[in-house]
């Protein structure tokens, strides 16, 4: 059996529909037979109605609020970009980064220069070859001269045929 003291403790929950089914039924039984608790419940219901009436007006969010939020956010974005840039330009970051770039550039230059042969013209190579062949100690100079010029002679003979 629910007492008035129990009822008073649970009236707010009852009014809000937050009681368990058992308690809800017990409280319903109690207030149907207890004018004092019934009056207390009516008082709570009236308070809720008063508060809802006082705040019944729904207002639109002013456009100036949205504009101010956007402005603040925009300022923060710019500040964040500036801070990021400044943090990259700090000597403690910039010096190692510059050293790294110089190191990478130096290694790349070294590797590039070591692997590529010097550029020499074809005409120079042919002339060197002819001079080397003509000066060879172990061969006949006349035969060498013939070898060096025979292809031209053969080509000329082929053209005349």
């Amino acid at each position: 059996m629910m007492t008035c003291h129990d009822c008073q403790e649970l009236l707010t929950d009852y009014q809000r529909g937050e009681l368990t089914a058992d308690n809800d039924a017990a409280l319903f039984e109690h207030i149907s037979t207890c004018p004092q608790c019934r009056a207390e419940l009516d008082g709570q219901t009236e308070l809720t109605a008063t508060l809802r009436a006082a705040f019944s007006q729904e207002l639109d969010m002013p456009a100036s609020v949205m504009a101010s939020v956007r402005q603040s956010v925009h300022s923060e974005r710019r500040a964040a970009f500036g801070n990021a840039l400044r943090s990259w330009l700090r000597p403690v970051v910039l010096a190692p980064a510059a050293a790294g770039i110089v190191l990478v550039a130096g290694v790349a230059t070294y590797v590039h220069n070591g692997s590529t042969p010097p550029r020499v013209s074809a005409e120079y190579l042919v002339r060197q070859h002819v001079v080397h062949t003509l000066n060879s100690q172990s061969s006949d100079r006349a035969w060498n001269a013939y070898l060096l010029t025979s292809s031209t002679s053969d080509d000329a003979n082929a053209k005349t045929k």
């Binding site: 729904e58 207002l59 639109d60 969010m61 939020v69 923060e76 974005r77 500040a79 801070n83 990021a84």
Partner: peptide, 29 residues
Amino acid sequence: PSRPAEPPSDDQNAFLEHAMATYGRQTYN
């Protein structure tokens, strides 16, 4: 604080705009 906790992004802006459009009135009230 002087700057946001994370870098700003387009998603972050879209989140804000959606939040203001959908919940701005209730939040203001």
